[in-house]
Design a protein around this nucleic acid. Structure first.
Length: 141
DNA sequence: GCCAACGTTGGC
DNA sequence: GCCAACGTTGGC
C-alpha cells in the first residue's frame, strides 16, 4: 500500500529543478517532530508532491521515495543523537503540467482542507488519494 | 515588515 | 506534568 505525501522546500535552497538535474537527493534538515514522523512513515515507492514555499507558493512536481528513513547526517554532525532526526532519499518523477498555487488550493472545496493548508508549518505532510487526484486536475492533467 | 499561529523550552 | 514565556515560521 503506497501513500501520498507532500514535501516543502525553499527553491533558493533546493528547487525541484535542481532535483530534476541531480536525479536523486537526500531529503534532510527536517527539524520538527510531526514532520519527522511523516518521514519515518514513508515507504520506497511512495510518491510526494514537491511544494515551493517561497516565490510563487505552489506545487511544482512529483518525487518518489527511493530509500526509507535513516539518521539525518547533518543532524548527527551537529551532535544530535542519530535516532532523533531522519532523512529519506528521493528521485524526481516529473514536473506537473501547470504549478498549482496555494491560492488555488485554498479556493478548492476539497483541497482547502489539506494538511498543507490547515497546518502551514508542517514541512512534510500526508496527502489523501482524493487530494492527490484533485491537485492533478488543477495541474491540467 | 507585521502579526498570528504554532512548537519548544524551562520553571514550578 | 502543566503552563507561561519565548522563538520561529509562514501568510499577507
Amino acid at each position: 500500500m503506497t501513500s501520498r505525501w507532500l514535501v516543502k522546500t525553499e527553491p533558493e535552497t533546493y528547487s525541484f529543478e535542481t532535483l530534476l538535474k541531480e536525479k536523486r537527493t537526500c531529503w534532510d534538515l527536517v527539524r520538527n517532530y510531526a514532520a519527522r514522523n511523516n518521514l519515518k512513515a514513508m515507504k520506497v515507492g511512495d510518491q510526494a508532491f514537491v511544494y515551493h514555499s517561497v516565490g510563487p507558493k505552489s506545487i511544482v512536481g512529483i518525487c518518489e521515495i527511493i530509500k526509507e528513513h535513516y539518521p539525518d547526517p547533518k543532524a548527527v554532525d551537529e551532535g544530535e543523537p542519530p535516532d532523533r532526526w531522519v532523512a529519506v532519499d528521493v528521485k524526481p518523477v516529473r514536473k506537473i503540467k501547470a504549478p498549482v498555487t496555494l491560492a488555488q488550493l485554498k479556493a478548492h472545496k476539497t483541497l482547502s482542507k489539506m494538511m498543507l493548508v490547515k497546518q502551514s508549518r508542517l514541512s512534510v505532510c500526508p496527502v489523501t488519494e482524493a487530494e492527490w487526484s484533485a491537485v492533478l486536475v488543477l495541474a491540467g492533467e
